[in-house]
């Protein structure tokens, strides 16, 4: 919650919206998950903290939060 974000994917529920890797330095609006919460985002899924665990091996970058923010958009 208070750790620095390692990766962030922003998904807009808009037709044709795509995400992609960029060569430019990513500019994120939030440094931590908590920063996003203070800006109106809500947690819809916590990381699976009880997931299987290996004390010697490394795999994916875990502790993935899914957040949601509802906004009224006037086209």
């Amino acid at each position: 919650m208070f750790s620095e974000i390692l990766s962030l994917t922003l998904i807009e529920p808009v037709k044709g919206y795509r995400v992609e890797l960029t060569a430019e330095e990513p500019q994120w609006s939030y440094r931590t998950v908590h920063d996003a919460l203070t800006d109106g985002w809500q947690i819809v899924q916590f990381p699976h903290l009880q997931a299987s665990f290996d004390d010697t091996d490394l795999d994916v970058i875990g502790y993935e939060f899914i957040l949601q923010k509802m906004e009224v958009v006037y086209d």
């Binding site: 390692l6 962030l8 490394l58 994916v60 970058i61």
Partner: peptide
């Protein structure tokens, strides 16, 4: 040194420290 199936990385986009 991180075993990472491609499907498990599908939710990542840009990652801090990535280098083009």
């Amino acid at each position: 040194f991180r075993n990472a199936p491609t499907d498990r990385m599908a939710t990542y986009t840009n990652i801090r420290g990535q280098i083009p």
